[in-house]
Structure formats: structure tokens, C-alpha cells
Design a protein around this nucleic acid. Structure first.
Lengths: 135, 135
DNA sequence: AGGAAATTTGCAATAAGGTTGCAACTGTTA
DNA sequence: TAACAGTTGCAACCTTATTGCAAATTTCCT
């Protein structure tokens, strides 16, 4: 599984990449950069974490999720990952209780009618509230 | 106008606050923290800018806009401002050409149907593409 | 208007977050 | 397994953000 993803994207299989991918695969939500560093920082250098995440984003293995504060969230979304390319047209949910961020893969972002002169190309949507675990 | 806003929010009227509010009022889009600092940095201390923006957010004069990178965008939205309280339920548009961020006050965020167990409380939506100036 | 109280500002120091160059090391390929 | 390409760790550095405190400004009250 992990090897498949790396190989499919023509990336060398290294301990760091395996570890970080594993982290994403075993997590049910999005991960903040800080989380990832916390979980790998004792084994890998800060710089390696930065570069690994950057590589994964470039290859389309993970993607950014917009946030209101200045933190960066990354998520690996199962279907995109399987397909090897990104759709990224699903809604993200942030739970106010457990503060996890979850990809709602089945909820697609609705189209909106923009004022005249605006042409849309991409849309992001973040809904916050209470998730099904905390309910 | 500027004084009204400050007084309505029970804030002392200081040069820094006037200047930054003026910046927002005269700008047609959202401002990044860096923009604001660039436009006031020679007159006011960095720290003052941080604290002023923080105060404005707390008072509901300006609000954050989510971004995918780790920059922070602030916007003052006219209707909210006039009303003295935030609705914040409008779509934000980022132009790929001029990279301005614009509040589309007339475009409200549509409701989406979430999976069972999720209860929504707030939603954000960012659409990117080409704006009416660049078209 | 004048002065006390409260708030705000600037400075300095510090912390946190992110980037770069380079040498050493690991993974890949034939 | 040797050679090459790609990756990592280190150190240094830069940018961005936060805190405490004294000085300055604003507000409020008479």
C-alpha cells in the first residue's frame, strides 16, 4: 500500500517517506504540520519533514486544506490517492469539539452563481460544527 | 466614518487604528498581514499592527479569510461593518490573475447536506478564478 | 481646560516557523 | 556491486509572531 503509492509517483522509498505516509494512512482526519513534526521529529530532521510534505503535495499525494488561522493542514484523501490524481472537490469538515479536520469525500462542493465578470475555476469549502464522533 | 466604527466598538481613537481602518476602507479587496505592515510599517511598529488587527478581529470589524498557504488575509466587509455585527456568510473570491481577494457580499454560501451525525454551524467558501477586472 | 486613570504604543528580547547550501548518506539502476 | 541520482541532516539564516515593561497617548471626569 505505502510502497504502491510511492512507486506510482516515482519516488524513492525512504524511511522518512514511509513513516509520514503511514501517519496519513492511519489518521482519520487531516494533519497539521505541527502534528506531523511531533510524530516524526525524534526520528527525522525538521527539514526532512518540510521537504517530504512539499514533495507529496507536488506529486498530488496529499493536499492543503485552507484554514482561518495561519496553520497549514494536509490531508490525504482516499479516492484521490487511489486514482493517483486529485479531484479535491469535496467539502472539509472541522469539528469544534475534537478539532479534527475530516475530508467529506461524498459531499461535493456546490456551484455558486457569481456576479457578472467573474469566472470560477476552483472552489474550496470548509464547514465547521460537531462531527459524528463527538455528537 | 472611521471614527464611527471605532466609537461604535468602544475603542480609543488612535493614529494607528485610524490609519489601518482607512487602509481597509480604501481597499477593494482583502489585505494580507504583509500588505498592511508594508503600508504602515514606516509609521507604526510591527507589534502595533499585530495588536491592532487582533483587536479589530475581536471586535468584529474585520475577519479572517481562509487561505491554502500559510498567509493570513483580513477583510472588512461593508455590510457587516455597517451593521456592527458579522454575518460572514458570503463567498470569497481569489483572482488568479491579479491575486486580489474579494468579498462577494451578494453571493451567499449554499447549504450542503452532510453525512449523518455531522451538524454544521459555520461554513466558509473560497472560489478562485478570474475576477471582473482581469477578465 | 486640567489632571488622574486607563489604554495603547514602542522597544527589546525571545520564540516559533520556514528556507537554503552543502557534504554525507541511502536508494536505484544496470 | 559499482556508479549515479536522489535524499537526508546539519548549521546557519531569515521571516514571522509573541511577551513584558516603561513611556506616551487617549479618555473621562470635574
Amino acid at each position: 500500500m505505502i510502497l504502491d503509492i510511492l512507486k506510482k509517483n516515482k519516488l524513492s522509498v525512504t524511511d522518512g517517506r514511509k513513516r509520514i505516509l503511514e501517519l496519513f494512512l492511519s489518521s482519520d482526519g487531516a494533519l497539521a504540520h505541527a502534528d506531523i513534526e511531533k510524530n516524526t521529529g525524534e526520528v527525522f530532521d525538521r527539514v526532512t519533514v518540510y521537504r517530504t510534505l512539499q514533495t507529496f503535495v507536488e506529486k498530488g499525494i496529499i493536499h492543503h486544506i485552507p484554514t482561518t488561522d495561519n496553520s497549514i493542514l494536509y490531508a490525504l484523501c482516499k479516492d484521490n490517492c487511489e486514482a493517483g490524481h486529485h479531484h479535491d472537490n469535496h467539502v472539509h469538515f472541522i469539528c469544534d469539539a475534537c478539532s479534527k479536520t475530516i475530508c467529506l469525500e461524498d459531499v461535493t462542493i456546490p456551484q455558486v452563481k457569481l456576479p457578472i465578470g467573474f469566472s470560477p475555476k476552483h472552489a474550496e469549502m470548509i464547514v465547521s460544527g460537531v462531527c459524528n464522533d463527538c455528537k
